[in-house]
């Protein structure tokens, strides 16, 4: 468990900062394009799974564009599958009418919807993970603020992220202390869980209090100060980037290209 936590901490701290030489595009442009992508992709009717699959190209293209490997993004996004499955599983029981058949196997509408919910969840998480990987979590929050998100909310987002570290570090030290005296006994009795959770709560609150005091000692009054590096200026190429992606995404939504392509093949 402590190995996993340690890796999680390393991965989280890597997400904090922007990918070096990531792009010449303004972070706000990427935020807007990601937002357009999410709206367009999530608005595809639930039974049009084939159309939805087209949108899997977006994270792949974005990753390739900035030189980030897509595979780790895909792997990390899988963490959402159990939650999405929990939401989608009821559709399987509600909608039992056949949607189509593949080689004699009938696929019901419920299964189609279930697949659609999983794909939507995966693509949404991938798009957001990519955005965080490219821009870095902290700069992203700053740019959200520049896009009009209230300063208080941006501060909360930054602090929430810091709290994950506080929590994980305390959990790491607790589990290491336990492991060093548990002699390979892996299973943890409920009583130990209770005391670990209790300890964790107390320790994280105390640590968070100390951090908060240290921040207050340096003049923090509830809002993160503006970044000290001059903000990037919005350029023409940012407008073009947003326009091109928005047109492409909206066109793919309105024109149903996959369906048309299938029809074309059928007529041929």
């Amino acid at each position: 468990m402590s190995d996993g936590l340690q890796r999680l901490l390393v991965r989280l701290s890597a997400l904090e900062r922007a990918t070096p030489n990531h792009s010449t595009i303004d972070p706000r442009a990427r935020i807007v394009v990601t937002l357009v992508y999410l709206i367009v992709m999530l608005s595809v009717p639930i039974t049009r799974l084939s159309e939805l699959l087209l949108y899997a190209l977006f994270p792949i293209i974005c990753a390739a564009d900035v030189g980030i490997r897509y595979r780790p993004i895909l792997q990390q996004s899988l963490v959402i599958v159990p939650f999405a499955a929990l939401i989608g599983v009821f559709n399987i029981f509600y909608h039992r009418e056949a949607a189509f058949a593949i080689g004699g196997v009938i696929i019901t509408r419920g299964w189609l919807e279930f697949g659609s919910i999983i794909v939507r969840a995966l693509l949404s998480v991938q798009a957001l993970l990519l955005l965080v990987r490219i821009e870095g979590y902290n700069p992203l929050c700053r740019n959200l603020q520049r896009l009009g998100v209230p300063a208080m909310l941006a501060t909360q987002l930054i602090m929430l992220y810091r709290y994950i570290f506080v929590l994980a570090e305390q959990l790491l030290s607790l589990t290491r202390a336990r492991a060093s005296r548990s002699f390979n006994r892996r299973a943890m009795p409920v009583s130990e869980w209770g005391s670990i959770v209790g300890q964790l709560t107390v320790r994280t609150i105390e640590r968070a209090e100390r951090i908060s005091l240290a921040m207050a000692a340096r003049g923090f009054e509830g809002r993160m100060p503006a970044p000290t590096t001059p903000p990037r200026r919005w350029l023409w190429r940012d407008t073009i980037y947003v326009a091109m992606w928005s047109i492409a995404l909206i066109a793919s939504r309105v024109l149903y290209p996959v369906e048309r392509l299938v029809q074309l093949f059928e007529t041929l």
Binding site: R17, N138, R210, A214, M215, A217, R218, F220, A226, T228
Partner: peptide, 27 residues
């Protein structure tokens, strides 16, 4: 200026530079 016992309680920004600028930025 108060320097805390555990520097991990004091340093919380992604880079050293940002952390050092936190106080002056609040001013």
């Amino acid at each position: 200026g108060l320097v805390f016992q555990n520097p991990d309680d004091q340093l919380f920004m992604p880079t050293v530079e940002e952390d050092v600028s936190f106080g002056p930025a609040n001013m």
